[in-house]
Design a binder for these strands. Structure first.
Length: 581
RNA sequence: GCCUCGGUGGCUCGGUAGGUUAGAGCGCGACAUUGGUAAUGUCGAGGUCGUGGGUUCGAUUCCCACCCGAGGCUCCA
């Protein structure tokens, strides 16, 4: 429905001739010219899809505008020319008459006749609010709209909002941490000290990555990509918001409605993706597949959003927005066993690299589930078989599976002894079914692949939190935001220090320079608190001998080295850390 | 979402049993200082005491609501 509001000194109209055959004859009185002074003209075009359910929206808009311009008289004027997608006359008339009835409770209402050619004359006041248009979308207020949907935005209020940016700025504050119950190596404290990231109340549960933290995240991603390439994975990236219908197909809408972030675009409901898989399904479907393509391993480092109960958030361990190191493996039932084994190995290798202890758990069918019991039997058996074959030590917990399939979870232990689920392997017969995935078999028949969802880090955010605590902030060199700090001994050595700094930087080492004129011990202390792996001090002695004094991660021993030797050593350490599993 | 606790400069924390200019250390800036591996000195800037409302002559302080955070439940595709 489209509305045009004109605040007028007067409106005059006179019906001349019927425009529609179906409308009733007007009485003699109604055929006369009408004049209304000091009124709000409401010109209405009722469109396809509108119904009496939209009357309330119309009323609210009229009330809104009338109160702003302080109008008491309303001229309700059918004005088809606002739209090229008109509702049929019966509905339009119905909507208009209902509207008139409701408006009469609060205003003097004059309704211009429907279905007549009319002569009209009016004078618009010309103040800033005297001409307004509004659009009411047919879905607004309908029972199908989600309660959280931005139905207000459908109103498209044209009024200028009244706010004071300075006042608003005071209302939003960064999140202050209550450290009273936290250990010293809690990632929330270390994250602040090391300037890795922060939180702000404008985005609860969503990380503001600072430069230092982003370096850690990027390194983990780089490493992940490297290893996955080596293990035969392809990589894709799918959109951040997708049509609600996609989530209805996948079943996420039914199961997790209330946890989704909703938005809309072009009058369609969109969902901010809580999962990567449906996007991945569409990529699979984009081209025909043959048995030769299987197993097809497709990774996606996707940003997902999930609304969580407000009490469960905690630093990086539990967030609302996170990067999932997802991958989907499409394969035949016969291949599943080997694929699962491969993933178990891969996860083990990752955790071993970070020296993280972990525990394995098999989660079987949950109450909230889709798919037949037959599927579940098959899937559970496959997972069990792989675990047994690998002689894994694992616990079975009933009812804990994902809604589309059973899973193997990998729980990593943090420094407090708390366990966090990171890695997961989930078998899924259901999603391929719902998305009608197919491949052509050797026998030229259409077959349905099965699908394995898996993640290793689980959430990059959580994994970084665990790493920070696990290493008490002393990240391995290849992950450290600052790998080397160069410190001068006195101002006399600045030039030499700058040369060393430049050389290391050229070599691709993340290095910074500290030339302030405070005593050395103070600068050493700062660098240690920042958990910088290598501290280089250059003074008169080093300058004369063309060496550097190297202090390694918290060790008190100082080693005098040639710059080139140091560069070689550090580069080798970084290289090995970031490429090899 | 529920129960308990918290929110005072960038950070860590004092303080106000309602009353003039809310303090300190670190950090930041300036100046002095030129020192050998976990804190050099002096001076200076920096605060709507989480937000909104109420009580009051007066609220950072008391009351209410909300927001954010922490611990614990519940939850985690």
């Amino acid at each position: 429905m489209k509305l045009l509001f004109l605040h007028c000194d007067y409106i005059k109209f006179k019906p001349l001739k019927k425009a529609l055959k179906s409308v009733e004859e007007l009485s003699e009185k109604e055929k006369k010219e009408h004049e209304v002074k000091e009124c709000l003209g409401v010109f209405v075009a009722v469109e396809k899809g509108d119904s009496v359910e939209n009357v309330n929206d119309l009323i609210n808009n009229v009330k809104d505008v009338a109160s702003q311009v302080k109008a008491k008289k309303i001229v309700l004027y059918p004005y088809a020319h606002l739209s090229n997608n008109l509702a049929n006359p019966e509905i339009a008339l119905n909507v208009l008459e209902e509207s008139e009835k409701s408006l009469k409770r609060d205003f003097d209402v004059i309704k211009a006749p429907f279905g007549y050619y009319k002569e009209v004359e009016l004078k618009v006041k010309g103040h800033p609010l005297s001409e307004l248009s509004r659009e009411i979308s047919p879905t607004a207020g309908s029972p199908t709209a989600h309660p959280n949907a931005l139905s207000k935005s459908n109103k498209q209020p044209a009024k200028q909002e009244d706010y004071d940016p300075h006042k608003l700025l005071n209302e939003i504050s960064k999140s202050r941490l209550d450290t009273s119950k936290l250990k010293e190596n809690d990632h929330r404290i270390l994250g602040q000290q090391m300037d890795l990231y922060s939180f702000n109340e404008v985005a609860p549960g969503m990380v503001f990555w600072h430069n230092n933290g982003l370096i850690v995240r990027d390194e983990l991603i780089k490493f992940w990509k490297e290893i996955h390439k080596q293990h035969g994975y392809l990589e894709i990236s799918t959109p951040q918001i997708m049509d609600k219908r996609l989530w209805q197909i996948s079943g996420h809408w039914d199961k997790y409605k209330e946890n989704n972030f909703l938005t809309n675009y072009e009058n369609k409901d969109f969902i901010v993706k809580p999962m990567n898989c449906p996007g991945g399904m569409l990529v699979y479907r984009h081209s025909t597949k043959s048995y030769r393509d299987l197993p097809l391993r497709v990774g996606e480092l996707g940003i997902v959003h999930r609304q969580e109960l407000s009490g469960v958030l905690g630093g990086l361990f539990r967030v609302v927005q996170f990067i999932q190191d997802d991958a989907h493996i499409f394969c035949t039932e016969e291949q599943a066993d080997e694929e699962i084994s491969g993933i178990i190995d891969l996860i083990g290798l990752f955790y071993k690299k970070f020296r993280l202890p972990y525990r394995v758990e098999l989660s079987t069918r949950s109450e909230k589930r889709i798919g037949t019991d037959e599927m579940w039997n098959k899937a559970e058996k496959l997972l069990k078989k792989a675990l047994d074959r690998k002689k894994m030590d694992y616990k079975t917990s009933g009812g804990q599976g994902a809604f589309y399939g059973p899973k193997i979870d990998f729980h990593v232990k943090d420094s407090l002894g708390r366990e966090w689920q990171c890695g997961t392997i989930q078998l899924d017969f259901s999603m391929p079914e719902r998305f009608e995935l197919e491949y052509t078999g050797k026998d030229d028949k259409r077959k349905r692949p099965i699908m394995i969802h898996r993640a290793i880090y689980g959430s990059l955010e959580r994994f970084i939190g665990i790493l920070i605590e696990h290493y008490s902030g002393r990240l391995p060199c290849w992950l450290s935001p600052i790998q080397v700090r160069v410190i001068n001994f006195t101002d006399r050595n600045n030039k030499y220090a700058e040369r060393i700094f430049g050389k290391l930087k050229e070599e691709g080492i993340r290095v910074d320079l500290e030339l302030s004129s405070v005593p050395l011990s103070g600068k050493i202390r700062d660098a240690e608190l920042m958990k910088i792996p290598y501290i280089i001090v250059v003074g008169d002695k080093e300058e004369k001998e063309k060496t550097i004094a190297v202090r390694t991660k918290g060790e008190k021993k100082i080693k005098n080295m040639e710059v080139d030797d140091f560069v070689e050593q550090v580069k080798k350490e970084i290289e090995e850390g970031s490429r090899k599993i």
